[in-house]
Amino acid sequence: MSYAVSGALQAAVFTALTQDAALSAIVGAGIYDAVPAGNVPDIYVRLGSETVRDASDISGAGAVHYMTVSVITTSPGFAMAKAAATVVSDALQDAKLELSRGRLVSLRFDRATARRIDAASARQIDLRFRARVQDD
């Protein structure tokens, strides 16, 4: 197993999302690896948790990363959150990301969960993606 590609994968996903014009039209610069202290926008995207499993084979070290990207909003209803989540999904599904280490074999949508948070005053959609990487 190799966890060594994790940082490169996260950086590539962050770059892909920050450079997506359609996502920027909805959330502006509100795309975070770590949400800053203080005021945050009414809608933003946050890179979240990750679970990694070994996927090494005779060709070398590899891993499957299950990554969560969340859309969080204080807007009433789910409409804005779903619009942003759709763009996130479109930006990452089968994306051809360049990694600073290793290579991305595939990146696919796995599942999503939409829920109310903060005593129902906010909405959150967690999108989970499955990334297969090889540490060449």
Rank of each mutant, 00 (worst) to 15 (best):
I26T: 06
D42Q: 12
D57Q: 15
A25Y: 10
L92D: 10
E98L: 07
G48Y: 02
L127I: 10
A84P: 14
L127F: 02
L92V: 07
D33K: 06
S24Y: 07
L92W: 10
P36D: 10
F129D: 10
L23F: 05
A21S: 15
H65P: 06
R101I: 01
A63K: 00
R123K: 07
A131S: 05
A119F: 00
S106G: 10
V40F: 07
D94Y: 11
V105P: 04
P41A: 15
D110S: 09
V40Q: 08
T18Q: 15
I31D: 07
S24E: 02
K96A: 13
A25P: 03
S56Q: 13
Y32E: 10
A25N: 12
F129R: 04
K96L: 08
A55H: 14
A119I: 08
V27P: 00
T18Y: 03
A34E: 15
A61H: 13
G28N: 13
V105G: 00
R130D: 05
V133C: 15
I117D: 04
A79K: 11
A79S: 15
D126E: 02
Y66A: 12
Q134I: 04
Q19S: 14
A25G: 13
A95R: 10
V52H: 12
I72G: 05
A63V: 11
G102S: 06
A95K: 04
I58G: 04
S59A: 11
F78H: 07
A112E: 07
S106C: 05
S89C: 06
V71K: 03
R103V: 11
F109L: 12
I43Y: 03
S49C: 00
A61G: 13
V87I: 15
S59G: 09
A61S: 10
N39C: 01
G30M: 04
R130C: 11
D20P: 10
I117K: 03
V45P: 03
G30A: 15
A37N: 09
T51S: 12
D110N: 03
V40E: 06
V52F: 09
I26R: 01
T73V: 04
A120P: 00
K96I: 03
N39S: 10
Y66D: 14
A79P: 00
V45D: 09
G77K: 08
A119E: 09
A22N: 13
A112L: 02
A25D: 15
R123E: 01
L97F: 04
T113F: 07
D57S: 12
L47F: 03
L107D: 04
P41Y: 06
S56D: 14
A34P: 01
Y44R: 01
A81G: 08
V105M: 11
L97H: 06
A95D: 07
R115S: 06
R115L: 08
D110I: 00
A63M: 02
